[in-house]
Amino acid sequence: MQQALERIAVPTLALLASAIAFGLLLAVYARVDPLETFALMYQGAFGTWFSWQNTLTRAAPLILTALCTALPARLGFIVIGNEGALVVGGVAGAAAGIATSGASPLVAQLAMAVAAMVMGGLWIALAGALRQWRGVNETISSLLLTYIAIALMNHFVEGPLRDPSSLNKPSTWPIGDANMIGTIPGTDVHWGLVFGIVACLLAWVVLRFTTWGFAMQVIGGNPKTARMMGLDVGRYVLLACAAGGAAAGLAGMVEVAAVHGRANASLAVGYGFAGILVSFLARHHPLAIIPVAVLLGGIGASGGLLQRRLDLPDAAVVVLQGIIFVAILASETLYGRLLPRKREG
């Protein structure tokens, strides 16, 4: 009970502290009224049905990319190559969509999703494999792989896969309107949100209720013990990395099939990097990813309103995100100390 209370109280305190710090910056440096700012942010993020849809649309890709960090993190691996997995997934998805453009939409969509997930999965599994068999640090290799992925995307989009009629915004051939996956009925929010939530639920079920999940917990707790128990650590590492990469790859496919209709440089706009933040804020817990992504999406959604009404620069919301992130991470230290607790056994 007290633990549950703490899980609410600690982040709330951290958010409150962030709000105060950000409010001070606004009041002292930018000379705007912090309360007015927060009211506007609420309005822009959650104040109306339109705002909610705006927030959820922005949250959708973050939920999927966050899994790319969260799943390997359960084994103690810090992967930050989310952006790269999203980008290669998007390009592979677009390529599959173009290749199957004659087929029925369902086949084309499935092909796109599978291609994107396989490509994204392989991309991050590569970082996992390099770690497992060559001892290459996965945090750094996945970061390098991201830069390589973006270069490859640019190469393909402006070279072999380029649609010559995409004049001033080089893009691949379109996947065709029929193959677009559209929005959730009654909303403007694309299906990526549903994919993300389902993926998080699935991850939670696997981690919580299956032997695989249990084995991952053991490995994450102590890899040496896991090896002594005869667990094939390498296989789990590859699986977790591949699953995470597949989630980010799917996010890329959603960008192509629900937003752009083709692959281009707009795939690499930072959804992957934001996903890293979401995962850490959610303490790599698949279910916690959803509300955290919504929070971050909401901050993003409200940024425009701050620019228009208060003449604040775009960077204002980045500062707020940074403060929140640091505050929540620092608040980890409060667990077990905030509330008097019965002695643990």
């Binding site: 705006n54 649309t57 922005r58 915004k169 694309h190 960008e255 937003v259 752009h260 707009s266 706009v269 930072g270 993003g300 959604a301 425009g304 620019q307 228009r308 620069p313 775009d314």
Partner: peptide, 12 residues
């Protein structure tokens, strides 16, 4: 509004 990426963000 500045620094709006060429994604769903600009639609919003």
């Amino acid at each position: 509004e500045e620094k709006v990426p060429e994604t769903v963000a600009v639609e919003k």
